[in-house]
Amino acid sequence: MSYDNKDKGMTLIVKTITGLTVGLILLYGLYITLHGHISPGGGFAGGVIVAISFIHLMLAFGREEALRILPKTFISVLESVGALLFLGIAILGFMGGYFFLDWFSKGKPFELFSAGSIIFSNIAIALKVGLGLFGIFLVLILLKFTSKDE
């Protein structure tokens, strides 16, 4: 990451602090996502936090930096993949007889590997929501820039 580039992004202080915290925010988002079935949170909340970590990066370092890490086509492709994954998990329920049926092994309550397919659904939702939200943010930013250029 370019800490020295003064033209793009905010000041060095913001950049340094962001560089230190952004990884933690991302990790926290992943934690919320993966523990969605045993504690408050879940795919949506986790996805929003993941999106916030990228938005943070973008605000501090300028949009080129964020777009270098997550290109635009990559975002829209992964977003669709997240949605299809969720749909796929729902369709897998047909193997147990019903749409959306959770037929995986349930495991023991209050452990990480429990609650069947919910953890996979949460991951799919987090993918969809996180990248979707970041995509919305990105699109609004890009819209603003085109109107300013004219």
Binding site: A83, L84, L87
Partner: peptide, 21 residues
């Protein structure tokens, strides 16, 4: 009746697949 949910599954999956491809 197993085909009932397909009224939403088909258009939704169609939409995302079209967006991908």
């Amino acid at each position: 009746m197993v085909i009932i949910p397909f009224f939403t599954i088909l258009p939704l999956s169609g939409a995302f697949i079209i967006y991908l491809v």
